[in-house]
Design a protein around this nucleic acid. Structure first.
Lengths: 146, 146
DNA sequence: ACTCAAATGTTGCAAATGCAAATATTGCGA
DNA sequence: TCGCAATATTTGCATTTGCAACATTTGAGT
């Protein structure tokens, strides 16, 4: 009997592989849902953050997502063109405060709904308890509650 | 007292946000380690898979990572140029079998070591038990063991 | 054996991304 | 107050990515 292509290691249990797969799936699901809104993933992220916390500066938004400044800059370019967001002049003249326009606010329910739906469907394989544990562990890995 | 910028929702506990952050961190860590090898992330992924299971076709590799065919095609273009991998003719004349060259095999220890190190450091915040639970849950979310 | 749809890979071109340099503004310290 | 380093954002350009069309090979049905 011939020794069939046996993997040296069960890579499917490795953190890296699992993250890669889950992230790919998450992104695909989000992109699908966002299709109708015309938002890209980064625009969506920024939009959510602006809806959550109005008036933050671009660099603050960037830190929140660990995204580079230029990505925020460009995401907001797009959101501004779509009339969903505006760069306001705050105390500082270099640090723009980003706020949702009325059209942007109007989009909020849809976006919140997408988040709920996608998060829910991605975690559908878990029981409620498991999901709670899972999120707690994700948070701990991230460096949240020790 | 003024109501300070209060977020409407604790987004930091949302699956989406956590995945975004953790994936960003993971990728950054890997890219850092891979610097010296000259491999891109997708080249690294493909290389690992080829080392794990030699002779797989490109589409099989693609499925394993949920990566599009063209990405595999291009990753292998690069790996071939670096002399780490070769496209072999198998039973079928369209489906190439990908195998590591000797130089590719020689790279294995380094790559395995990078995987161990990065996976370890990413999960460093967890105890061993927690890490086991975490990986099991990731796997379940992915659709592994039900 | 023949035809045609499906499977496998590759590639041209457009769009997104990343890097590094440029610009503008602020604020610290001499 | 002046000079200069730090902060905040933008942008030009090169690289990477993604889409969609293409080419090739296989296999199933007739």
């Amino acid at each position: 009997m011939k020794k069939e292509n046996e993997p040296r290691i069960k890579r499917e249990k490795s953190y890296g592989w699992l993250m890669q797969r889950l992230n790919t799936r998450l992104r695909a699901a989000l992109v699908g849902e966002l299709q109708e809104t015309g938002l890209s993933l980064s625009q969506f992220a920024v939009m959510m953050h602006v809806l959550d916390r109005t008036g933050q500066t671009q660099s603050q938004i960037g830190q929140h997502f660990a995204m580079p400044a230029y990505a925020i800059s460009r995401a907001i370019d797009g959101l501004e063109e779509m009339g969903l967001v505006e760069r306001k002049q705050g105390a500082s003249r270099r640090a723009h405060q980003i706020a949702a326009t009325q059209a942007g606010e109007a989009l909020a329910p849809r976006l919140y709904s997408i988040v709920r739906e996608v998060n829910g469907q991605e975690l559908a394989a878990l029981t409620e308890d498991e999901a709670a544990t899972f999120l707690a562990l994700l948070s701990k890995v991230h460096g949240g509650v020790p």
